[in-house]
Amino acid sequence: MIKVSVMYPNGDDPTFDMEYYKTAHMEIVDRTMQPSRWEIESGMDGPYIAIGNLYFESMEAMQAGMGGAGEALADIPNFTKTGSAVQVSQIVEA
C-alpha cells in the first residue's frame, strides 16, 4: 500500500478553505486520481493546517493516479494560496 500525504503548512497568515477542500476538491481528486481511499486531517496544533492522505494499492496505481492529477492541481488556488509538501510512503504492515 502506498500513501501520498499532501501537507499544507501553517504560517503567519494561512489561507485554507477546509469546506471546499473536503467537498469539491476531494471529489476531483477521487474522480481523476482514483485512490483506493483518502482521508483529511485538520491540524489543531503543529506545523500543518491540513493534510490530505491518498492511498493506492501499488506504486503503479499511484503513478497512474498522479498522471491524472492535472485537474486537481489546477483546482488548488480555489482553496489555498499556501504551498504544500508531499510525502510518498510505503505502508509497513505490522
Results as ranks from 00 to 15, higher is better:
residue 1 M to C: 09
residue 2 I to S: 00
residue 2 I to D: 02
residue 4 V to M: 08
residue 5 S to Y: 04
residue 7 M to Y: 14
residue 8 Y to K: 08
residue 9 P to K: 06
residue 10 N to A: 11
residue 13 D to W: 15
residue 14 P to G: 07
residue 15 T to W: 15
residue 16 F to C: 11
residue 16 F to L: 08
residue 16 F to Y: 10
residue 17 D to M: 01
residue 18 M to E: 13
residue 19 E to K: 12
residue 20 Y to F: 03
residue 20 Y to S: 01
residue 20 Y to C: 01
residue 21 Y to P: 01
residue 21 Y to S: 09
residue 21 Y to W: 14
residue 22 K to D: 06
residue 22 K to Y: 14
residue 22 K to M: 14
residue 23 T to C: 06
residue 24 A to Q: 11
residue 25 H to Y: 03
residue 26 M to R: 00
residue 27 E to V: 10
residue 27 E to Y: 09
residue 28 I to P: 00
residue 29 V to Y: 00
residue 30 D to I: 11
residue 30 D to F: 04
residue 30 D to Q: 11
residue 31 R to E: 05
residue 31 R to L: 08
residue 32 T to D: 06
residue 33 M to K: 01
residue 33 M to Y: 00
residue 33 M to F: 03
residue 34 Q to T: 10
residue 38 W to G: 02
residue 39 E to L: 06
residue 39 E to N: 12
residue 39 E to M: 06
residue 40 I to L: 08
residue 41 E to Y: 09
residue 41 E to T: 12
residue 41 E to I: 13
residue 45 D to T: 12
residue 47 P to H: 04
residue 48 Y to V: 03
residue 48 Y to D: 00
residue 50 A to S: 03
residue 50 A to V: 00
residue 50 A to P: 01
residue 50 A to Y: 01
residue 51 I to R: 06
residue 51 I to E: 03
residue 51 I to D: 01
residue 53 N to C: 04
residue 53 N to D: 14
residue 55 Y to D: 03
residue 55 Y to M: 09
residue 56 F to I: 02
residue 57 E to P: 07
residue 58 S to A: 07
residue 59 M to F: 12
residue 61 A to N: 06
residue 62 M to T: 09
residue 63 Q to A: 10
residue 63 Q to P: 02
residue 63 Q to R: 14
residue 63 Q to K: 09
residue 65 G to D: 04
residue 67 G to S: 10
residue 68 G to T: 01
residue 69 A to I: 11
residue 70 G to T: 02
residue 71 E to P: 05
residue 72 A to R: 00
residue 72 A to E: 01
residue 75 D to M: 04
residue 76 I to W: 04
residue 76 I to L: 10
residue 78 N to H: 04
residue 78 N to T: 06
residue 80 T to Q: 08
residue 81 K to C: 13
residue 82 T to G: 07
residue 85 A to F: 15
residue 85 A to N: 15
residue 86 V to A: 14
residue 86 V to I: 14
residue 86 V to C: 10
residue 88 V to I: 13
residue 88 V to P: 08
residue 88 V to A: 06
residue 90 Q to A: 14
residue 91 I to M: 12
residue 92 V to N: 09
residue 92 V to H: 10
residue 93 E to F: 13
residue 93 E to Y: 11
residue 93 E to P: 04
residue 94 A to G: 15
residue 94 A to I: 15
